[in-house]
Computed example of a mutant assay.
Amino acid sequence: MIIKIKDILTKDVIHEFSSIQDIVRWMTSCFSISNLWYGHGNNNPWDEAIQLTLSLLGLPPYLWDNVYKAKLSIKERELLYTKVCARIHKKIPVAYLTNKVWFCGHELYIDKRVLIPRSPISELINNKFKSILSKNQKPKYILDLCTGSGCIAISCAYLFPNAIIDAVDISIDAINVLEYNIQLHGLEHRVIPICSNLFNKLKKSTYDLIITNPPYVNKDEIRYLPKEYSYEPKIGLLSDDNGMEIINKIISKSFLYLKKNGILICEVGNRMLNVIEKYPTINFQWINIKNGGIGIFKITK
């Protein structure tokens, strides 16, 4: 006998659960036999279930070992059931169901005004930019270009406690989410939100480090993305010129805004070969990502 989703996704089933572990196991089964895409931070139904459950219960992910045997109230079970139905039937990503993600160990507010943080740049931050910045390099002025929720800017503020970070985005909606996250972390005097079309409102020769994860999906590709991506703002995904328009602007203008020996770190994903072909004379250092992800380069002024 093969279990079907209609057999186990019924509201009556929530009365059979007692603990967090019980509902996460059930949730994992539901996700496993549903046609879901895991591309927004998790890559399997178990982690997806843990994120959904703990986030809705107001618990950080690192507390799993301490709380998995804890009992759930009826109200909590009902809420979780409702969110599981939305995840399965509407394909809404977990982060938009909970309005919460963790990036580099830091909690962030997320809604449909911004992309869900998932950049492999997080690995570089977690590794303290080892082999990218020398031990003596402590950037004082950092630019997070195309900041979205501010995940990279806020994480860098924790990593470099003496740095000032300009967090730039063209979308005023994204800036509003960013401002909320800045206040959430008490970083009002160190992370500066700027609504700008890339470098337009910035001063030249300012930054020791520019980090950017710009849009690089082309119009043909977006039509074939799983439904989960349809909930994200297209302004954060799409770029003209076969996905290269914004990347080209960043490469051509970034050196004007870097100080001497300043560094640009840019994620271009599957546009990596396009970048290599278009700029054969630039010495790109392509960064190895151990936990998955391609197309992050470093160049030094």
Rank of each mutant, 00 (worst) to 15 (best):
V84T: 08
A70M: 14
F160Y: 14
D173R: 11
E78S: 11
H40V: 05
L143F: 01
F255C: 01
N261E: 10
C104K: 03
K69L: 10
T212Q: 04
E16H: 13
I50C: 02
D65T: 11
L108N: 02
I3S: 13
Y257V: 06
K91Q: 10
N162L: 07
S29D: 10
I170S: 11
N261D: 15
S19G: 14
N35E: 15
S171E: 06
I142W: 00
W46G: 03
C85N: 07
G243Y: 00
Y38N: 12
N66Y: 10
Y216G: 03
S239Q: 05
L56I: 04
T98K: 06
R118T: 15
N291T: 11
T206F: 00
V191F: 00
P161V: 14
I296W: 00
H40G: 03
I2V: 10
K301R: 13
D47M: 13
E76C: 11
Y81L: 08
A163H: 01
H40P: 02
K234P: 02
R25M: 15
A157G: 04
L54S: 04
I152S: 02
P117G: 06
G292Q: 14
Y231N: 03
I125E: 02
V24A: 03
I2F: 07
I152W: 02
S205I: 05
I8N: 12
I2T: 09
A167L: 12
I265M: 03
I3R: 10
P233A: 14
N176G: 06
I74R: 11
N44E: 13
G186L: 03
W26I: 03
K130I: 08
G41P: 01
N99E: 11
E76D: 13
K227V: 08
P61D: 13
H185G: 04
S34D: 12
S29I: 12
E179G: 05
N197W: 09
I251G: 00
I33R: 03
N181R: 07
I132V: 15
A157D: 01
R118P: 07
